[in-house]
Structures are given as structure tokens and as C-alpha cells.
Computed example of a mutant assay.
Amino acid sequence: MNPIVVLVHGAMHTPWIFGPLRERLTARGVSSRTVQLPSSNPDSAAAQGLTEDARAVRAAIDSVDGPVVLAAHSYGGVPATWAAAETAQVTELVHLAAFALSPGTSMIEWMGGDFPPDWLHSPDGLAVKAGDPEQSIFSGVDPRLAAEAVERLNWQGIRAFTEQLGAAPTDIPLTYVVATEDPALPPSVQEEWAARATHIARVPSGHSPHLSHPDEVAAVLAEAAARAAGAA
């Protein structure tokens, strides 16, 4: 049975962000699905946390009848890691410039205990948004596409940052895609995490390689799917 690629978006995003990448995957004969993380919501009061995100990713995996290549971007790497630890269905985990935290660690701990000073806080204090996303999240992306992506950003629930990662898989191959020109998540940090991976790919992109270099990312995911199909 051919594996399905399940795509997990980063903080503040929606599955729309994977449109260009999914087109490339389809062209390569690779099927994909997306999941909407509950922590990302246009209503700050409705934005949830990491626990709900991991549950949503697990539900997306469970909905697939067969093997899954689980690919996650940025913050999405945290709930994806947790979900992958709770199922034998994931054949490979792919981090796209994603956070590879250790169990028992939260995003806010990794960030030094506070949000960047230019981030926006919702009036109710329940959610945040990144400051200057064109330069941080979408650097190197076509300006028109980046502008639309910024317009589509949601509030991100505070609990996504304060809740600790519950578990991480120990026996699932990891591919890490390092974004070598990333201004948001330092490439040196990505390289440290990638050193623990089974496979490493490097893309000369900013923090959103799936938008700026969808062909290169699709090739990495197609290789992961081929490995999964060969192991089936």
C-alpha cells in the first residue's frame, strides 16, 4: 500500500500554506493530506494548545488506511513528534525547519522564557502573533504569495508554547530539512537537530521552504514515501 504524506503546519498557519507543495506531490504521484491545528484560530479565545494539537495530528494519522509519512513545519514539529510517538503507523517523520524538542520541554522554555519583543499579544491575553512575518516567516517567498500568507495568519494559542512535549518516538526514522537561510530559526540550531536525523536535506531557503522551494521539498517527501513503500 502506498503511503500517504500527512502535512502539519506551523504556528499561526492553516493547511492553505501547503498548497504549492501538495501540487508538486500530486505531480509526483504522492498522495497527501493536511491537518488543521486547533492552536491556530482567527479567534484568540478559541485558540487551543499543544495537547489538542497532538490529538488532532493523531486523529489525522488514524484516518489514513495505511502507512504515513508525517511531515511538519516549524512549531508543527512538536505536536507531530508527540503524535508519532503514540502510533506504529508513521513510517518516517520529516521536519521542515521544525522544532525538535525533547520530551518534557516546552516552546517557551526553548525560547528563553518569553516571546520575542516584537510579537503581538491578543487583548484577552490568550494568544500571540509573530511580528514582521514577511521578514521572519516568509523571507525569500514570492512577495505576492508572502502577502497572501500574512493575511491568512491566525492567532496562536499561548498554551501551544507553555505546554510541554509529552513524548517522542525512539524508533522512527527522521529526515530533517535544514533551511540554510532561515532568519527565524537559526540554521545552526537546525543543524544540531539534524545531526540526530537518519537523513538530512539542505534547502537554500528562509523559514518556509515549502513555499519558496516546493519542488525541492516535494522531492524529499517523495523519497521518504518511496522508502516507506519499499519497507511495506
Results as ranks from 00 to 15, higher is better:
189 V>K: 04
221 L>F: 00
213 H>L: 11
87 T>K: 05
88 A>E: 14
186 P>M: 04
183 P>G: 09
85 A>W: 00
53 D>Y: 08
132 D>G: 06
195 A>N: 12
29 G>R: 07
160 A>L: 06
29 G>N: 11
126 L>C: 09
139 S>G: 08
92 E>N: 00
113 G>M: 10
181 E>F: 03
145 L>A: 13
81 T>L: 14
150 V>M: 11
146 A>Q: 05
22 R>E: 13
127 A>V: 02
130 A>C: 15
145 L>Q: 13
226 A>K: 10
103 P>N: 02
108 I>H: 06
31 S>T: 14
211 L>V: 04
131 G>C: 09
96 L>T: 07
57 V>Y: 05
161 F>H: 04
35 V>K: 02
163 E>G: 02
110 W>H: 14
38 P>D: 10
38 P>F: 07
10 G>Q: 05
225 A>V: 12
100 A>I: 07
162 T>L: 05
58 R>C: 11
97 A>Q: 01
97 A>E: 07
146 A>C: 07
53 D>M: 09
18 F>S: 02
134 E>T: 13
146 A>M: 05
84 A>N: 02
193 W>T: 04
154 N>R: 10
96 L>I: 15
81 T>R: 09
106 S>I: 06
7 L>W: 01
203 V>C: 08
120 L>E: 14
106 S>G: 08
61 I>H: 01
50 L>M: 03
141 V>F: 12
35 V>M: 03
184 A>W: 06
5 V>P: 00
148 E>H: 14
84 A>W: 01
204 P>E: 03
32 S>Q: 01
8 V>T: 00
27 A>R: 13
205 S>C: 06
37 L>N: 01
35 V>F: 00
135 Q>F: 12
104 G>D: 08
186 P>D: 12
85 A>S: 12
137 I>R: 10
86 E>T: 13
59 A>C: 09
27 A>E: 15
